[in-house]
Amino acid sequence: MFSMLSALTLCLALSLVNASTLDRRARASVYSQCTVAKTVALTFDDGPYLYTIDIVNALNAAGAKGTFFVNRCIYDTAGVTNVKYAYDHGHQIASHTWAHKDLTTLSWDNIHDEMWRVEQALVRITGAYPAFMRPPFGNYNDLVLDASGVRGQSVVIWDFDSQDSLGATVATSKSLYASRISAKPNTILALNHETIETTAHQVLPYAIQTLQAAGYKLVTLAECLGKAPYQSVVAPSTRDSSWVC
C-alpha cells in the first residue's frame, strides 16, 4: 500500500483541476531526435500487449534497453504484468495517453483527462510518474504542449519510422532500418509498435544486430536525451477496487 507521503505525492501529481488554477509552466519541449552521440532509442507504442515480454527479453539478451509508450486501460492482469516486467527489467515506461485519441481535436479538460488516466495507472503499477508523453499519431498543437508543460512532461516524436503500423512488410521495415543506418546518422529515435508480431519477432532482432554492428548504443529515450525518465518514483500500490477502466 502507499504510505501517506506516497498517497499525497500521487494526489498532487495526478489531480485534474480547473484550468484557471493549474500552475503556469513553460510550454512543453518537443524532442524528435536524440542528443547523446552514437545512441539509438528504440521506442514501442500502443502496448502493453502480447509481445511486451518477448521484446524486453530480446533487448536484455543484447544488453540493450528500450522505451515503451503505453496507452489504454492497463489494469487487466496481463497489462499490469507486462508493464511491471518492462519496468522491473530496466526499460523506460512513458505515456501514450489513455484512449489513443487525437489530442488536437480535444478540449483542454479532455486533453488532461487523457493524460492523467494513464499517468495514474502507471504510478499505481510501478510507482513511476512519467516525464515523457508521445501524442497519438504524433499529433500535437499549442494546447497539447501547454497541457504537457503544466504536467511537467516533455513531448516525444521520432526521426525514424519502421512503418510497421502502416502495414510495412518485414522486408520493408528491415530495408528502412538498413537505409537509415547506412546514412550514418549521429543518433536515431526509432518508432516501432509492440502490437505487431513481426516487429517483435523478426524486425527487432535484425534492428538490434544491425545497429549494434554499426557501433550504436541502444538505450532508453531518457538516456539518449541525457534526462531523467521520471518526474518522481514512489512505492507502487497494491491492487484494489479502484483499478478499473
Rank of each mutant, 00 (worst) to 15 (best):
M1V: 08
M1E: 15
S3F: 09
S3W: 14
S3Y: 10
M4I: 13
M4H: 08
L5I: 08
C11S: 10
A13P: 01
V17Q: 14
N18V: 10
S20K: 15
A28D: 02
S29H: 10
S29Y: 07
S32P: 04
V36M: 09
V36A: 07
A37G: 03
T39C: 07
D45F: 01
D46P: 03
G47H: 07
L50I: 11
Y51R: 07
T52L: 00
T52C: 02
D54W: 11
V56M: 13
A58S: 14
L59W: 07
G66T: 00
V70M: 11
V70C: 08
C73P: 10
A78W: 12
G79Y: 11
V80Y: 04
V80K: 14
T81E: 15
K84M: 08
Q92N: 01
A99W: 11
K101F: 06
L103V: 05
L106N: 07
S107T: 12
D109K: 14
M115T: 05
W116Y: 15
V118I: 15
R124N: 15
I125K: 13
I125R: 14
G127S: 06
A128F: 00
A131R: 01
A131P: 00
R134S: 06
P135D: 04
Y140K: 02
D146N: 08
D146Y: 11
D146G: 03
S148R: 09
S154T: 01
W158F: 12
W158P: 05
D159E: 04
D161I: 03
G167E: 00
A168I: 07
A168K: 02
A168P: 01
A171F: 09
A171T: 11
S173I: 04
K174W: 10
L176Y: 13
L176E: 02
S179N: 14
R180Y: 11
R180Q: 14
I181A: 02
I181F: 02
I181Q: 04
S182H: 05
T187V: 07
I188K: 00
I188M: 15
I188W: 05
L191P: 05
T195S: 12
I196M: 11
A200T: 04
H201P: 04
H201L: 09
P205E: 08
Y206Q: 13
A214H: 10
A214D: 06
L218W: 11
V219K: 03
L221D: 08
L225Q: 12
G226Y: 11
K227N: 10
K227A: 08
P229H: 11
Y230E: 03
Q231G: 01
Q231C: 01
V234Y: 05
V234S: 07
V234H: 12
A235T: 09
S237R: 12
S237Q: 10
S241W: 13
S241T: 06
S242I: 06
V244P: 00
C245N: 02
